[in-house]
C-alpha cells in the first residue's frame, strides 16, 4: 500500500466531508472539485490514465462549471454574492445521519470480512489504443446509446432552463439580435 494512495484517499474524504458540511454553496462546489481531482489522482495511481484524465476534463472542466453557474443563477438576491443555505431541521439531520450510519454499518463489516480474490503483482496495463478498439468494437452500441442520451439530455436541459414566459426573460436579453427591444413589435 503506497503513501500516495493514503494521501489521495485522505484528500478525497476530507474535502468531500467539508464540501457536504459547508454552509456556503460556492465553497461546497469548489471543495468537491478537489474531491474530483483527488479521485482522478486515484485513477492515475491505479494505472487507468485515460479514465483519470477523462474524469478531470468532464468533472473539473465541465460539471463544476455547470454547478457554479447554477449556484450563481439561483442566488436569492441579485447583488448578493454570498450564497448561504438555510440549516436543515433537527429531525431531518438526525434521520438522515441515522439512515447513513445504517447503510455504513451494513456495508463496512461485510466488506472487511469478504474473501476477495485478488491479483498478485503489478496491475494490468491498458493503452489508449486498446480502449479505442474496445469502444469501437464490442461496445459500439453502448457508445451510440450514450451519444443519444447526451444529445437528448442536452436538449432537455435547454428546454427546462430556457425562459418560457416574457417576465422570466431577463431585461438584457432581447432575443440575441442586438437590437433594442423598443424597435421590436410589442407582443399583443
Amino acid at each position: 500500500m503506497s503513501l500516495a494512495f493514503l494521501a489521495l484517499a485522505l484528500v478525497c474524504v476530507v474535502t468531500a466531508s467539508a464540501a457536504m458540511i459547508s454552509r456556503n454553496l460556492i465553497h461546497s462546489a469548489l471543495l468537491l472539485v478537489l474531491t474530483w481531482i483527488g479521485l482522478a489522482g486515484l485513477y492515475l495511481w491505479a494505472g487507468a490514465d485515460f479514465v483519470g484524465f477523462s474524469q478531470a476534463i468532464v468533472y473539473v472542466g465541465g460539471v463544476s462549471m455547470v454547478v457554479l453557474f447554477a449556484v450563481l443563477l439561483t442566488r436569492r438576491q441579485r447583488d448578493e454574492p454570498l450564497v448561504l443555505i438555510p440549516e436543515a431541521g433537527v429531525g431531518r439531520v438526525v434521520a438522515g445521519l441515522a439512515a447513513t450510519f445504517w447503510v455504513a454499518a451494513l456495508l463496512v463489516p461485510a466488506m472487511v470480512v469478504a474473501p476477495l480474490v485478488q491479483r498478485a503483482g503489478p496491475g494490468p496495463t491498458l493503452t489508449v489504443k486498446r480502449i479505442g478498439e474496445l469502444l469501437a468494437g464490442p461496445h459500439l452500441v453502448a457508445v451510440l446509446v450514450v451519444g443519444v442520451i447526451l444529445t437528448v439530455s442536452l436538449i432537455g436541459a435547454l428546454y427546462l432552463a430556457a425562459p418560457v414566459t416574457a417576465e422570466d426573460q431577463p431585461e438584457w436579453d432581447n432575443g440575441g439580435t442586438g437590437r433594442d427591444r423598443g424597435n421590436q413589435e410589442e407582443p399583443s
Binding site: Y59, V146, A157
Partner: peptide
C-alpha cells in the same frame, strides 16, 4: 462519467 455529466446538466436545469 458521460452519463453523470448528462445527469448533472439535466439536474441543474431542473
Amino acid at each position: 462519467i458521460a452519463v453523470a455529466a448528462a445527469e448533472a446538466a439535466v439536474g441543474l436545469a431542473l
